[in-house]
Amino acid sequence: MAYLIPSLRLWLVTLLVCVVGYTLLVLTFAQSVAPFRANGSIIIVDGRAVGSELVAQKFTSDRYFWPRPSAADYDAMGAAGSNLSPTSETLAKRAADTVARYGATPANPVPADLVAASGGGLDPHISRGGALYQVRRVARARGIDPAAVARLVNDGAIVPGGPFAPDPIVNVLQLNLALDRVKP
């Protein structure tokens, strides 16, 4: 019993320092250094939140670029990869349906990132090659010159890993918002 009161005091101090103090310190630092990122990277268009740079959204219209498939059906509350094995018939059917949706052929194979879900199921980026693969469909649906759509893809491509990961990627939401600003 002699150790109970000092132990409770130590627990309370540790709780205040490690949980409350540390959380406030990190939150204050993040809000002062990078408030856009600290608040979820929410993109606002005409005063309305349209999505986050960090979470994929479902686009199904031919007028838009489509993101990677999502095992979580693009629900951030259920972010998770699929637990289906590579030999799963369900996974094979889903991949076959996706390949058919893109109209892929042996002569024009679909890029792998457009068929396979990311680890968390919410990756907001696709490869530049995956975006360029969709240019003709999007341009045709919008009545826009495919070269103009390809320019949007190339202008929006980033290389986040520099020389360590040199493959460019494109944020699907930002690319689709840029498309909406283009007049046919």
Rank of each mutant, 00 (worst) to 15 (best):
Y3F: 13
Y3V: 14
L8T: 15
R9T: 13
V13C: 12
C18V: 15
V19L: 15
Y22A: 08
L24K: 01
L25S: 07
T28N: 09
F29A: 08
N39H: 12
N39M: 07
S41V: 10
V50P: 13
V50I: 15
S52F: 03
S52P: 03
E53P: 05
E53M: 13
L54K: 00
A56H: 10
Q57E: 06
T60S: 15
T60L: 13
R63N: 12
F65K: 00
W66K: 15
R68M: 06
A72K: 01
A76W: 08
M77W: 06
G78I: 13
G78D: 14
A80Y: 11
T90I: 15
L91P: 11
A95L: 09
A96T: 12
D97R: 06
T98N: 02
Y102E: 04
T105A: 14
P106A: 08
A107Q: 12
N108M: 07
P111C: 07
D113V: 05
D113R: 01
L114G: 03
V115N: 01
S118C: 00
G120Q: 04
R128T: 09
R128A: 14
Y133E: 09
R137Q: 15
R137F: 14
V138P: 01
A139M: 03
R140N: 10
G143D: 07
G143A: 08
D145P: 01
P146Q: 01
P146I: 02
A148H: 09
A148L: 14
V149K: 00
A150M: 02
A150G: 04
V153S: 05
F164C: 00
P168R: 01
N171D: 12
L173F: 02
D180P: 01
P184D: 05
P184L: 04
